[in-house]
Design a protein around this nucleic acid. Structure first.
Length: 278
DNA sequence: AGACAAGCCTGTACGC
DNA sequence: TGCGTACAGGCTTGTC
């Protein structure tokens, strides 16, 4: 489940391997890989052009190319990018797109559940971001989350803290794993209504968002048993070993040793410590 | 065998 | 009336 830390790790790998490289050939398989427009449009935008930048906004990867072409990638649940040096013939199952560079090295898009997608942006807004990403909220890794910003974002919102953290239009990049871990780090229950959080609690939340995401990026993200996230070179992340509550129902809370509980909040699984989260 | 998980979109219902 | 919200369903397939 690539969330902000995983996508940031992929972005760094992408920058290391493909920045400045010239695309020779692009193959797209399956009708769901490119679904916002004709696949040929993507092939034509990429072939013959060099990659000039690799950005990330929330869970979206943005690959800039010469002639102001912009490739946008979202991995959704099971999408992976894999860099394969030239001569690595075997494509693993569910390889839906292959970008071959000058010299023969390949960038492969693999996605068993086919929720992920690639598309060419129709243009950029005044901030230089793809217009399709216009509704994304504040990216807590690119921009510092302050109490003031959180106060602005939660006013008049009658939703739970967990729902707020998952709302990509408020904060971009947090998914179910980091949502639970941030609530734990902030000592706040996921069911709390955001409009009712005190300034002190919002300060704790801001600090938790910053700490959890930074530590997760430093650990190369989280790799779980299912969907098994790996970075662009096939390496696993290690932040799952630091998860305090996510999928740890019944385990001892690392802070107070109470048993971790779980349930459903806004239709999504949630995990929390009943003693030290309030 | 069948429920479930994930992110995100869409349709629908409902309360303030 | 209308907005914001919750909830269910859809998409998909590996895992339990």
């Amino acid at each position: 489940m690539p969330e902000l830390p995983e996508v940031e790790t992929v972005r760094r790998g992408l920058e290391r391997h493909v920045l400045g490289r010239k695309v020779l050939r692009v193959e797209v398989h399956g009708p769901r890989t490119v679904r916002r427009h004709d696949a040929k449009q993507l092939v034509d935008a990429l072939e013959g052009r060099r990659i000039t930048g690799v950005r990330r906004y929330g869970k979206f990867l943005v690959v800039d190319l010469e002639a102001d072409k912009t490739l946008v990638i979202h991995l959704r649940m099971s999408g992976k990018l894999r860099y394969a040096p030239g001569g690595t013939e075997d494509h693993e199952p569910h390889t839906h797109a292959v970008i071959t560079f000058d010299g023969g090295d390949e960038l492969r898009f693999i996605d068993p559940r086919t929720f992920g997608e690639l598309f060419i942006s129709a243009g950029t807004n005044e901030a230089g971001r793809p217009v399709e990403l216009g509704s994304l909220g504040l990216d807590p890794y690119l921009e510092k989350v302050t109490v003031e910003k959180l106060e602005d974002l939660v006013t008049a919102r009658r939703i739970s803290l967990k729902a707020f953290l998952l709302d990509q239009a408020a904060l971009a990049g947090i998914g179910n794993i980091y949502g639970d871990e941030i609530c734990f780090a902030a000592r706040l229950l996921p069911t709390r209504l955001v409009a009712g959080l005190t300034r002190r609690e919002l300060a704790s939340l801001a600090k938790a968002i910053d700490q959890v995401l930074n530590q997760a990026v430093a650990s190369g993200g989280s790799s779980l048993r299912d969907a098994s996230y790996r970075d662009i070179d096939g390496n696993l992340g290690s932040y799952q070993m630091k998860h305090a509550v996510y999928k740890r129902t019944g385990d001892k809370c690392p802070r107070c040793a109470s048993a971790v509980e779980s349930g459903t909040v806004r239709g999504r699984s949630a995990h929390w410590c009943p003693s030290c989260q309030m």
